[in-house]
Amino acid sequence: MSDRTAARAFDSVTEADLRERFERTDYVADDRTVTTVSLALQLGQPLLVEGPPGSGKTELGKTLAAGFDTELIRLQCYEGLTAENALYEWNYTKQLLAVQGEEGSVAGRSGSPSDGSRGSSVFGEEYLLERPLLRALRTDGDRPPVLLIDEIDRADEAFEAFLLEVLSDFQVSIPEYGTVSADRPPIVVLTSNRTRGLSDALKRRCLYLHVEPPSFETEHEIVRRKVPELDAAVAAEVCGVVAALREESFLKQPGVAETLDWARAVARLRHEESDEPLSTDEIERTIGCLLKEAEDVSRVDAELLDRLHDAAANAADGIE
């Protein structure tokens, strides 16, 4: 971890400062999240965020980029993702054209990258296609970018091992080109849905943050900020229903993202800023925003709807 001594752009970010930036971008974070994120910024360590789907992990990365007014570089992981897709590729077409244009000159030019002839080699800067990781290391903005490596658990273990080099030293070696290292390391946020365990080596290099499903009050605050067109009492009812749904044993529990979708749907279907309480019918018609499995939807019957309706009424009373 040689970057420890390097100058860190966010060395002096305080919790209050971070809280204010979250506030500005309408991201509702609990104290633990604020402390952990500020530590990650101060210590310059990557942040590994785990939690159930829809709990705002990706949003955290976006919020950091927006809050610090810097570039967000996102690497969405998937099975089969290779280092080439994530780091760099050579522009083969351009290389080929260049070689054909100067027939016979390749052999002498593609030698050692440090012999000074790199400028005219087909393995030079102009033939390099930056992919997210390399872009994050070479970016030359005022502030380091936020590198969001989303759903790292979907990538292969081989890719994870490759990430280690990047994350520990913030530098990569390109055999034909040389070593690229970041002057100012990016803010790295990795998210994982924990579909598989991550390697110890990767976990060791990261600060760990487990995002819990939010409490009723937190969720209410989130809905109020993100869906301001919805009446506050109705927002409480929405959160009450979601909280009640999470008590049920569904295949796929609704996350905060689903709550927001539903709140927007409810707001859209209503006339103006109506503050009528949620009706059973309204819940039934829009339940598709919350439950995404056919089996779960089929379990919604009159009895469950009544319970949800009661939960909504209780929630509305609670914030009165």
Binding site: D31, T35, T36, A40, E50, G51, R194, L207, Y208, H210
Partner: peptide, 11 residues
């Protein structure tokens, strides 16, 4: 929060 972030790596 600091110890949780540094010592733990699984929920």
């Amino acid at each position: 929060a600091a110890l949780r972030a540094t010592l733990l790596s699984a929920a």
